[in-house]
Design a protein around this nucleic acid. Structure first.
Lengths: 123, 123
DNA sequence: TTCTTCCATAACGAGAATGTTATATAAACT
DNA sequence: AGTTTATATAACATTCTCGTTATGGAAGAA
């Protein structure tokens, strides 16, 4: 099922990276990392109309990066970051090329603990 | 110098994520992870004209994701993945939300070593 | 010099993205 | 019922994006 000579198609990544390619949307995501927020709250810091922000939220929702909820009239947004992990997983293919060693901390810690017999209680 | 209420502008990230939002370009990057390649080599697997691929390469170059070189008539492209690390660094803000803990292995090791007085020589 | 190969650029068109203002909808308040 | 508040949707204009074909230019081959 190869779509071309290299890799399978991953349509989700188109949408995810596309959603991340906008500074307003990244700012919204950063804001949501601090907790959920309503449309008006999210729109406030921007010099942009409310409908514009609503549409950015729609883009983020379609990318699976946020969830909307229902609170009476409000439709607060909250982060849903599993699709960001999808993006990171793709980027992870290039670990070897950027020199520094990103890796799963869990694996690293498990590895270190299996070798280290003390100093597990510090601070 | 805050551009809005949340974060500074990071225009590079627009371009980087924008470059990553296209399946052809991601396929090209994956291909380049296996080694440098000329335009024609890169274009071959696609059902797309050579000029189209040339322009994808230009997008990737502007995003700092590839470098072009000079080999007689050829202009082979090679990966330049430090800007992908930039993207990962931004995404890293959301580590806490996607459950698994990606992190800079180097920092983790430095941290652990500063607390651990032995077991620095293992293996 | 002429031909061929490799790649870039120009000109164009279709469709998507992003903003605007105006309006619709739905729930809450009076 | 009528008003206010919170958000979505419609209609529209402008600007990108991404593909095409046609052409240009530079380097190697004949």
């Amino acid at each position: 099922m190869e779509e071309n000579g290299y890799t399978r198609q991953q349509p989700d990544l188109d949408v995810i990276f596309g959603a991340l390619a906008d500074p307003t949307r990244r700012a919204i995501l950063s804001r949501l990392a601090a907790g959920q927020a309503t449309v008006n709250e999210l729109a406030a810091p921007f010099q942009m109309s409310q409908p514009a922000v609503s549409r950015h939220l729609k883009v983020l929702e379609k990318a699976g990066l946020i969830q909307r909820e229902v609170d009476e009239q409000r439709r607060p947004a909250r982060l849903r970051a599993d699709n960001m992990a999808l993006a990171v997983n793709w980027l992870d293919e290039f670990r070897a090329f950027w020199g520094t060693s990103f890796d799963r901390l869990d694996d690293v810690l498990a590895d270190l603990q299996s070798r280290t017999t003390e100093e597990q209680n510090h601070e």
